[in-house]
Simulated scan of single mutants.
Amino acid sequence: MTTSPTASSTAPTFATAAELLIGTRGTRRFEGRDFGAGISYFFVDNQPGEGADLHWHPYPETWLVISGTARATIGGDEFILRDGDTATVPPNTWHGFVNAGPGKLQLLGIHASDTIIQTFAD
């Protein structure tokens, strides 16, 4: 027997891209706890040479390259990630990336946490 989901007492939540924008270049930060979600994310919109400096999180982070080319450092290894590639960084692992291509890099960094917790190397 299949049962239907019951109505929730909380309404869905929404955020426009403009509400999540950090800086002036298109990168957005979504903190799940503010929207009743169990995950958080960065939507990265970087020009060539831009990226995220070395940092770590106490939970895994999964990257999906939407477009462009990223040179990623995960632990002591370097990888090239291209359109459609996915990589998961284990918890407590130093990592970062830079746009290594000639055009824009768009990357979704999904954090397995309702809040983004990060510690940078410097």
Rank of each mutant, 00 (worst) to 15 (best):
E61C: 09
E61I: 08
E61H: 01
T62K: 03
W63I: 03
L64V: 11
V65F: 00
V65E: 00
V65S: 00
V65T: 02
V65I: 14
V65N: 00
V65W: 00
I66N: 04
I66H: 06
I66E: 04
I66D: 03
I66S: 03
S67N: 10
S67V: 09
S67E: 13
S67C: 10
S67D: 11
S67M: 09
G68R: 00
G68T: 02
G68I: 00
G68Y: 01
T69C: 07
A70R: 01
A70S: 08
A70H: 01
A70G: 03
A70Y: 00
R71K: 15
R71F: 02
R71W: 04
A72H: 00
A72D: 00
A72T: 08
T73F: 04
I74D: 02
I74F: 05
I74W: 05
G75P: 05
G75C: 11
G75T: 10
G75L: 12
G76R: 15
G76E: 15
D77L: 09
D77V: 10
D77G: 05
D77M: 12
D77I: 06
D77N: 13
E78L: 03
E78F: 07
E78Q: 14
E78G: 03
E78T: 15
F79P: 06
F79V: 10
F79M: 10
F79W: 15
I80E: 15
I80Y: 07
I80D: 08
I80N: 09
I80L: 14
I80K: 07
L81T: 01
L81P: 00
L81M: 14
L81H: 02
R82W: 03
R82M: 08
R82I: 07
R82S: 13
D83R: 12
D83S: 13
G84A: 06
G84C: 08
G84Y: 01
G84H: 04
D85T: 02
D85Q: 07
D85V: 01
D85S: 07
T86C: 12
T86L: 09
A87Y: 04
A87H: 10
T88M: 13
T88S: 12
V89M: 06
V89R: 00
V89Y: 00
P90C: 13
P90S: 13
P90K: 14
P90I: 10
P90V: 10
P90A: 14
P91Y: 08
P91M: 11
T93Y: 09
W94I: 04
W94G: 04
W94T: 03
W94V: 05
W94H: 10
W94Y: 12
H95V: 06
H95F: 12
H95K: 10
H95M: 11
G96V: 09
G96M: 06
G96D: 09
F97E: 01
F97P: 00
F97L: 13
V98T: 13
V98Y: 05
V98M: 13
A100C: 08
A100K: 03
A100H: 03
G101W: 01
G101T: 05
G101L: 04
P102D: 15
P102Y: 08
P102K: 15
G103E: 13
G103F: 04
G103I: 05
K104L: 14
K104F: 06
K104D: 06
